[in-house]
Write a protein that binds this DNA or RNA. Structure first.
Length: 294
DNA sequence: AACGGTTGCAACCGCACTGGA
DNA sequence: TTCCAGTGCGGTTGCAACCGT
C-alpha cells in the first residue's frame, strides 16, 4: 500500500501552464499569499491544478525575483565548488545564487556545466609526471575558463585512479562532505580492500587537534607549497603515503583550488562507471547518495 | 523540405522531512 | 510518542525547439 496521492490526478489539469493560468496564480499569490497551504490554494484561486504543481510553478517561474537567462562564469564557479563540497544538494546550491532556483541549477548542471567540464578534461593535455605535486603548477590547463585548477590536484587523483585500475579494477566511492565539517576536505575517495586513506584537507584549530583522527590533515595555518602522493603494492595490500612541504604563499588558495581539481577528476572517471564498480565491489551499495560505510 | 537525433528546460513523481494535533 | 497532512527536495520524464544530414 503506497502513500495516498496529494490530489485526484484525474480531476486536475497537468502539463504546460497557459498564460491565463500563470496570470491567475500570480495575481492570487500576490494578493493573498499562499496562506501556508498550497493544497488548498488552487481551489481558492480557481485553478484546476494540483497544489504541488502550483507551488512549483510559482517557485520556479512566476516569482518576481526569479532570474532567467544564462549563467555567469562566477555562478559556474560557485556551482562547481558547492557541488564538490555538498554534492547534488541543489536547493542549497541555489540559495547561494540569488534569483536562481534549484531546478534551474540542476538543469544547468546536467545539461551544460557537466559537459563543459568534460570537454575541458578531454582537451587537457595528458599529464605523465608523477609524485611531486606543487600548488603553483598551473600550466597544463591554461587558456580555459578553469585555468586556476592546479595540475597537482589533477595529477594526484588521476594517478590514484590509474593505480587502482591497474591492481584489480576496483574502486571505492567518493564520500560527500560531512554535514558538520567546517570547510572542504579531501575525502578518502578511493581505496581497495583495506581502504587506504587519502589525505583529507580539513580546517583545524590552531592547536592542531581535529576530529578526523587517523588521517593526515593540513591546518590552514600551515603553509603549503607541495603535496606529494605515492603508492605502493605489497603483501598486505595497497599503501599510500603523502607528504606536504611548507613554503606556500597562500595555502587557503591551494586548498580551494584542490577542490576544483577533485571535481574535474570525478567527472573524468564518470559517475556511472564509478558506481558500477562500487556495486561490483560491494552489493550493498546502490547509488551515489548512499553512504558506503554506513 | 523532410526526417531523425540532440538539447534544454518545464513539469511531474515519489520519498523524506517537518510540525501540529 | 505517534500519526499524518503539508511541504521540500532530488531524480526523472516529456516535449518543443534546434540542428545536421
Amino acid at each position: 500500500m503506497g502513500r495516498a496521492p496529494c490530489c485526484d490526478k484525474t480531476k486536475v489539469k497537468r502539463g504546460p501552464w497557459s498564460p491565463e493560468e500563470d496570470t491567475t496564480l500570480k495575481n492570487y499569490v500576490q494578493k493573498y499569499g499562499t496562506g501556508g497551504n498550497w493544497i488548498a490554494l488552487p481551489h481558492k484561486a480557481g485553478l484546476k491544478r494540483c497544489g504541488k504543481s502550483c507551488r512549483l510553478r510559482w517557485l520556479n517561474y512566476l516569482r518576481p525575483d526569479i532570474k532567467h537567462g544564462g549563467f555567469t562564469e562566477e555562478e559556474d564557479n560557485i556551482i562547481l565548488t558547492l557541488y564538490h563540497n555538498i554534492g547534488s544538494r541543489w536547493s542549497i546550491i541555489a540559495s547561494h545564487l540569488p534569483g536562481r532556483t534549484d531546478n534551474d541549477v540542476k538543469n544547468y548542471w546536467n545539461t551544460k556545466l557537466k559537459k563543459k567540464l568534460l570537454a575541458e578534461v578531454t582537451t587537457r593535455p595528458t599529464t605523465t609526471t608523477t609524485a611531486a605535486a606543487t600548488a603553483t603548477t598551473t600550466t597544463s590547463i591554461t587558456n580555459t575558463s578553469f585555468s586556476h585548477v592546479p595540475s597537482s590536484a589533477l595529477t594526484t587523483k588521476i594517478e590514484a585512479n590509474h593505480f587502482c585500475n591497474s591492481v584489480n579494477n576496483t574502486m571505492l566511492p567518493y564520500y560527500p562532505l560531512e554535514a558538520n565539517s567546517h570547510q572542504s576536505f579531501m575525502p578518502e575517495m578511493l581505496g581497495i580492500s583495506t581502504q587506504f586513506p587519502l589525505p583529507r584537507l580539513v580546517e583545524v584549530p590552531e592547536n592542531g587537534i581535529n576530529s578526523y583522527s587517523g588521517f593526515p590533515t593540513i591546518p590552514f595555518s600551515q603553509e603549503v607549497s607541495s603535496f606529494s602522493p605515492s603508492f605502493s603494492l605489497n603483501n598486505s595490500g595497497i599503501s599510500a603515503s603523502w607528504s606536504v612541504n611548507g613554503g606556500g604563499e597562500d595555502n587557503n588558495t591551494f586548498l580551494d583550488e584542490f577542490d576544483y581539481g577533485l571535481s574535474y577528476d570525478l567527472l573524468n572517471i564518470g559517475f556511472d562507471f564509478l558506481e558500477d564498480k562500487i556495486s561490483e565491489f560491494n552489493p550493498s551499495f546502490t547509488n551515489s547518495s548512499d553512504s558506503f560505510a554506513g
